[in-house]
């Protein structure tokens, strides 16, 4: 044995799924660009919001001014600096998106995994709950719930939790379908024959095989959450001023898209860029996790 220790690369870590995926990912130019833009937006938004926390609440006499050196994104009809609003809104959207997608990821994967792997009564019960949530229109639930929730006035956290609570069903169905197919694969039986428990089979064999699907759909959920929040804002059920989101700004700017287009195009453009970045990152992740794309170390 000691021979191997000297000869073998025992100092080096053994390849794991993550290390391979990360290595692939680092070679994916599209995805890296996506991440770079995303991070830049995030940093700029953070810095700006920290340096100028009152940017979005300080009224000026510059009503509906086009972009200038002083107001790079122009101002709104009520004289607010649109850049401050867009960046603050972007930050707010990202916070909501992170909460929503984390919930969707965790609840969706857990429910889908349990239903798909164990099947039987557990599966039936869980899937009926999912059906129920899918059948009742999301918007209706949100309208009813947000009235209860937002009696305090549209707290972003409450909105995020609400959207998150209703957004996991899609992932759970996909994970379940994926698991139904995966659990019949011989390597699952082989790993059980080697002494793997259900928990081990699910966490170490099935989820890693479904990770591509899970990742992509989580990123879709991120985009979906941002869009849903803007819909809610439009209906007056989303977050309320002084809090701000990109969706809210887009809705506000929509009316003046012809007269003062910057009020629409800046928040909409930023929203679009963020959503695109998220998609590109998701795509890159799916490709990175496909073992067929594994590139050799060295």
């Amino acid at each position: 044995m000691s021979i191997f220790r000297k000869k073998g690369r025992s100092g080096e870590k053994i390849e794991t799924q993550w290390s391979t995926a990360m290595r692939n990912f680092r070679k994916d130019k599209m995805a890296l660009t996506g991440i770079a833009i995303f991070v830049i937006i995030l940093i700029v938004a953070l810095v700006q919001t920290m340096l100028n926390p009152k940017g979005w609440s300080t009224l000026t006499t510059d009503f509906a001014k086009p972009p200038s050196w002083h107001h790079p994104f122009g101002t709104t009809d009520s004289g607010l600096d649109l850049m401050s609003g867009c960046l603050k809104g972007a930050l707010q959207d990202l916070i909501i998106a992170v909460i929503v997608s984390t919930m969707a990821l965790v609840i969706g994967t857990a429910v889908g995994a349990v239903a798909g792997y164990f099947g039987g009564l557990l599966d039936s019960v869980l899937m009926r709950v999912v059906d129920l949530l899918l059948v009742v229109p999301l918007l209706t639930i949100l309208i009813v719930m947000s009235n209860i929730f937002s009696s305090g006035g549209g707290s972003p956290l409450a909105i995020a939790l609400l959207i998150g609570f209703l957004s996991w069903t899609y992932i759970s169905r996909l994970v379940r379908a994926e698991f139904l197919a995966l659990r019949e694969r011989p390597f699952v039986e082989a790993s059980i024959a080697l002494g793997a428990s259900s928990w081990r089979v699910i966490t170490r064999h099935l989820i890693p095989n479904a990770i591509g699907v899970i990742m992509v759909n989580t990123t879709l959920t991120v985009a979906g959450a941002i869009l849903l929040e803007s819909t809610l804002s439009y209906l007056g059920l989303g977050i309320v001023p002084p809090a701000v989101s990109l969706g809210m700004l887009v809705q506000d700017g929509q009316g003046s898209a012809t007269t003062s287009p910057w009020q629409f195009f800046f928040p909409a453009g930023l929203l679009l860029i963020i959503v695109l970045c998220v998609f590109v990152i998701g795509d890159g992740m799916q490709a990175a996790f496909d073992p067929r794309n594994a590139r050799r170390r060295k």
């Binding site: 799924q17 011989p186 390597f187 024959a193 890693p208 996790f289 073992p291």
Partner: peptide, 30 residues
């Protein structure tokens, strides 16, 4: 749940089709 401990350590099985009895997403080493 008492079988887990026995499988692999006391009794192990080699299946027919090696093409499908390994997990495709992990390295051989893993």
């Amino acid at each position: 749940k008492d079988m887990y401990k026995m499988r692999g350590s006391k009794i192990a099985m080699i299946f027919q089709d090696p093409m499908t009895s390994l997990n495709p997403v992990y390295t051989i080493g893993w």
